[in-house]
């Protein structure tokens, strides 16, 4: 099924679009030229490459997490979730930063190309943030003795999650996709700029989360080598996973846009 979409999008040359453009140029209609989005072969190729790399990387880091990295002295095996939790969290931030940048570009250029990237990254970011919250809860129960506390980082992450769920909701409920894209872009910008302020306010409110572990405030590295290697491996693997999911989603959204354009072309 996936393959069919891929090949259909590949085969479909630009002639349908060209036909529409031609009719416009002929002066039959006065429809303004709408910026087009096509499935990009580059995105398609890199989605395949990063997909394979991410699969290999994730398998390797799974092995490293359970067989190479030593058990932590105090927390025992429970600590191993750290290798999943932290890379996911870092990539979620990257995803929302990508949303911020592409949203700003969309509002500036108003080309649907940027909106495609923004919504793709937002969806992956929401999934990653959900996993961060769940894996954090799983770790907190044995270590803190509770699933959840209203600590600064936990609360900020929860609010971050709510903001980007609202981001997806405003798109879903918009009366037309172009409006949804504009509104979502505004939320993508406001939400991202709001995060430091939210974090500061919640931090003054209360704090419990473990401090920076990897790069400590003194500047030293706080992890033994085997743990650090495992962590870096997992970080690379999850970053590849993020890039793969982002590109795959972008490709899918581009195909959707293209189909929508073919439909409009046929109607006109």
């Amino acid at each position: 099924m996936n393959q069919t979409v891929r090949s259909a999008a590949r085969q479909a040359p630009h002639d349908a679009i060209a036909g529409r453009d031609g009719s416009t140029a002929a002066g039959a209609t006065t429809v303004p030229a709408v910026p087009m989005v096509h499935v990009s072969p580059t995105v398609d190729r890199w989605a395949r490459i990063t997909g394979v790399l991410a699969a290999v990387g994730l398998l390797a880091s799974l092995v490293a997490i359970f067989f190479y990295a030593p058990a932590e002295r105090v927390q025992g095996n429970v600590q191993r979730i750290f290798y999943v939790h932290v890379p996911l969290a870092l990539n979620a931030y990257v995803a929302f930063f990508v949303v911020f940048v592409t949203s700003a570009l969309y509002l500036w250029k108003r080309h649907p190309r940027w909106d495609v990237w923004a919504r793709a990254s937002a969806e992956v970011g929401v999934v990653f943030t959900t996993l961060v919250l769940v894996s954090g809860s799983l770790w907190a129960k044995p270590i803190w003795g509770t699933w959840w506390t209203w600590d600064a980082r936990l609360t900020t992450t929860l609010i971050l999650w709510l903001i980007y769920v609202a981001y997806l909701a405003v798109r879903a409920y918009a009366t037309d996709p172009e409006k949804g894209a504009r509104y979502a872009a505004v939320l993508g910008i406001v939400g991202f700029l709001d995060v430091p302020i939210i974090h500061q306010s919640v931090k003054w409110w209360r704090t419990l989360h473990p401090g920076p572990t990897i790069v400590q405030e003194s500047g030293g590295i706080g992890l033994p080598p085997a743990m650090l290697v495992t962590f870096l491996l997992a970080l690379i693997a999850f970053t590849l996973l993020y890039v793969f999911l982002l590109l795959e989603k972008v490709r899918l959204e581009q195909a959707k846009e293209q189909v929508a354009q073919y439909r409009t072309a046929q109607l006109i």
Binding site: L162, A169, V170, Y173, A174, S201
Partner: peptide
């Protein structure tokens, strides 16, 4: 202004507004 142009405006306004205004 955004929510007024959507289908679920009564629901969407608090959903959009409250996370942002936590500070």
């Amino acid at each position: 202004a955004m929510a007024a142009n959507t289908r679920a405006r009564e629901v969407l306004l608090p959903v959009l507004l409250f996370p942002i205004t936590v500070p």
